[in-house]
């Protein structure tokens, strides 16, 4: 490709990523509105009846408005995902390599993966209700990525390997599932608490229109059970193999590796906790959140803060 084409592609990518950020922020607003409109609404079962009465009372009905906002949120999320897909793809074309070679690119690509995971799971398990958290988090990640923006360009030599594709792809897929799992765990904590403390007749608001805490917990477990083997593969198999090729050691306890290991251990703890009386429920959900925090720290803290304190042996 000619230099001009590459430049145009890089430019297009920047526009697309910026637009996707904006659209995603709007999706977040719509989702928040969905919760807001439903503030005074009674639990879902009335909605089921209302749904069968065609027409209802129009857009003045808070349930209608809430549903509409939710629909808009989902559409905007889909749009943001498509635009971001264009952004990430053009970035890859402009740099002539996989578009996850630095922090900025990883932020964009990982957000894309998380949005796709969300949209797929919305179809499979109807988990629209984690929408506000996913879109909110995604907007923050895209915004933060913009702060570490670098122009499309070459990779450092150690990254020249197809293991980069495998390893990072695995990390992104499991990371996306971890995000959905963390979002579900937050809602689980909120909802199970509310179920214990709120009397039947005071149950108002969107929280009572999402599935029961048991159902949420089940979603959380399933995404974690899906993500954990992939994380095992990405962090403890593909990573070490690549390190062996590139640096001559499969495990060197460098900060990135240490934190990947910590994440793995915490999620292993989560899976155990789920199967242990007295630990399942709240404690397990908190472990899931800690696990996600260590995952995020590995990409933010270790890159910016620990990495700056002492260099990797590359």
């Amino acid at each position: 490709m000619s230099p001009e084409t590459l430049k145009t592609l890089a430019q297009a990518s920047n526009y697309a990523v910026a637009s996707a950020t904006g659209v995603l922020a709007l999706a977040f607003v719509a989702y928040v509105a969905q919760w807001g409109f439903a503030r005074k609404l009674a639990p879902e079962r009335e909605l089921v009846n209302a749904g069968s009465v065609e027409g209802g009372s129009g857009a003045d009905d808070p349930a209608e408005r809430s549903n509409m906002a939710g629909g808009i949120g989902l559409s905007l999320t889909t749009l943001a995902t498509l635009v971001l897909l264009v952004g990430v793809a053009t970035r890859g074309l402009a740099a002539q390599r996989v578009p996850w070679g630095n922090m900025y690119e990883f932020g964009c690509a990982a957000t894309l993966a998380a949005l796709i995971a969300y949209l797929v799971l919305v179809r499979v398990w109807e988990i629209e209700w984690v929408g506000p958290i996913i879109t909110g988090f995604g907007t923050v990640v895209l915004g933060a990525s913009a702060m570490v923006y670098v122009p499309a360009g070459p990779l450092v030599p150690a990254l020249h390997s197809y293991w980069l594709v495998i390893h990072v792809l695995g990390a992104m897929i499991s990371g996306s599932a971890f995000l959905v799992g963390a979002a579900a765990s937050v809602l689980y904590l909120v909802k199970s608490r509310a179920e214990r403390t709120t009397p039947e007749d005071e149950r108002r608001g969107f929280l009572w229109r999402i599935p029961s805490s048991a159902k949420i917990d089940q979603v959380a477990y399933r995404v974690h059970a899906f993500a954990f083997p992939i994380w095992t593969f990405a962090a403890l198999i593909a990573g070490p193999i690549w390190a062996q090729y590139a640096w001559g050691r499969y495990w060197g306890w460098d900060p990135k590796e240490v934190w990947a290991f910590i994440t793995w251990v915490v999620y292993a703890g989560y899976l155990h906790a789920r199967a242990t009386a007295g630990w399942k429920g709240k404690a397990a959900a908190i472990l899931a959140l800690i696990g996600f925090a260590t995952f995020v720290f590995n990409f933010v803290g270790v890159n910016l803060w620990v990495g700056g304190m002492h260099s990797y042996a590359k």
């Binding site: 460098d254 900060p255 240490v258 910590i262 915490v266 270790v302």
Partner: peptide, 24 residues
């Protein structure tokens, strides 16, 4: 075992914050 596992992870943290002879 879980505690030991978590302890192993926590014990690994200082090694990620201070430079290591074997690494650098």
């Amino acid at each position: 075992a879980l505690m030991l596992l978590l302890l192993l992870a926590i014990a690994a943290v200082p090694g990620s914050l201070y430079p290591q002879r074997g690494v650098d």
